[in-house]
C-alpha cells in the first residue's frame, strides 16, 4: 500500500476486528485498520455508516462488543476515555460538547490543567497558575477566539463553538488528533482557519491525524489516505484518487444520495 511505503514505522493506532452491536444493529462490523504517524487519514462514508461510532470506540467513549484497539502495539481496549486521553489520543467532537456555563478560556484552561496533571491539586488557587492561563490563551489565539475568552461557551455562535472544540483538542497536545467533521456548520470564511490548523499539525510530521469529513473537496486537499465505511463495514482503504474512483465508493455514495459531493 502506498501509505505504508511512505512511512514504514509501527502503526501508532490500530484496530483489529473491532465490532459494536446495539441490540440487533451492528454499527461497526469487524473493522481492522492501522494508522501511521505523519499521515492524515480521512474516514468517509454516508450518514449512519458508523464513522463517529468507530471514533468513539477508538477514543474510549464506547466499549466494543468484540475486537481490540492497540496503541503502539499495546492493547488499550480495556482503558476508559480519560486514560486514553492521557496516553495521547485527542478527540474533538462532532456535536459540540463543551462546558456551557464556563467561560471560553476556562474550557481550554481545564484542558491545559489536565495535561499538566494538576487536577488533584486542592491547596493552591487556580488563578495563581498563570502559566496554565497563558497557555490556554495561546491556543485560543490559534483559533482566533481571544476576544471572546471571557464569554460563556454557551453564548458562542455555532462556528465559534467548533473553533473552541478545536482549541481544546490542540490544548490536549495529543499524538493522535481525531477530528469529527471539524468544519460542519461553519461559514465559508471560517473554514480556512480550521483547514490551515490541520495543515499545520500535519506539517509537524510526527502526528497521526484522523478526520471524519463529508466535504469531498476538504478530503481531497488534506488526505493522504481514505478509509471508506459503509453500513459498519470497511469497504475501501487506500490512496485518495484510487479510492474515490473505485466502483464500491461510487455506489456507496450514490446509494446514500450524496453523489454531488464526490
Amino acid at each position: 500500500m502506498s501509505n505504508e511505503a511512505r512511512s514504514g514505522e509501527v502503526p501508532v493506532l490500530s484496530t483489529h476486528g473491532l465490532t459494536i452491536r446495539f441490540g440487533g444493529h451492528v454499527a461497526v462490523n469487524n473493522v481492522s485498520c492501522e494508522f501511521r504517524p505523519g499521515t492524515l487519514t480521512a474516514i468517509v462514508g454516508p450518514n449512519g455508516a458508523g464513522k463517529t461510532t468507530y471514533f468513539n470506540l477508538m477514543s474510549g467513549q464506547l466499549p466494543p462488543s468484540s475486537g481490540t484497539v492497540r496503541l503502539y502495539g499495546e492493547d488499550i481496549t480495556h482503558l476508559g476515555a480519560p486514560q486514553r486521553t492521557k496516553r495521547g489520543i485527542g478527540r474533538a467532537f462532532q456535536l459540540t460538547n463543551l462546558f456551557p456555563n464556563l467561560t471560553v478560556l476556562e474550557n481550554v484552561r481545564l484542558t491545559v490543567q489536565s495535561r499538566a496533571g494538576m487536577g488533584l491539586n486542592m491547596v493552591s488557587m487556580w488563578a495563581s497558575h498563570i502559566e496554565l492561563i497563558e497557555k490556554a490563551e495561546h491556543f485560543l489565539h490559534l483559533v482566533a477566539l481571544t476576544e471572546r475568552r471571557h464569554e460563556n461557551a454557551a453564548a458562542l455562535s455555532h462556528g465559534d463553538k467548533r473553533k473552541l472544540e478545536i482549541a481544546i483538542l490542540l490544548a490536549l497536545e495529543p499524538d493522535i488528533f481525531m477530528f469529527d467533521e471539524p468544519t460542519a456548520g461553519m461559514s465559508v470564511d471560517e473554514v480556512p482557519v480550521v483547514l490551515d490548523l490541520i495543515q499545520h499539525i500535519k506539517a509537524m510530521g510526527d502526528k497521526t491525524i484522523l478526520l471524519v469529513e463529508h466535504k469531498m473537496d476538504v478530503v481531497r486537499s488534506l488526505a493522504d489516505r481514505i478509509v471508506v465505511l459503509h453500513n459498519g463495514y470497511l469497504v475501501a482503504d487506500g490512496d485518495p484518487t484510487e479510492v474515490m474512483n473505485s466502483p464500491i465508493v461510487q455506489e456507496a455514495y450514490l446509494g446514500a444520495g450524496v453523489a454531488d459531493h464526490v
Binding site: K86, L102, R115
Partner: peptide
C-alpha cells in the same frame, strides 16, 4: 457541567 467531556479531557470523574 459535562462529565462526559471532563472524561474526554483526561479527568477520571
Amino acid at each position: 457541567e459535562n462529565d462526559f467531556r471532563a472524561e474526554a479531557l483526561g479527568y477520571r470523574t
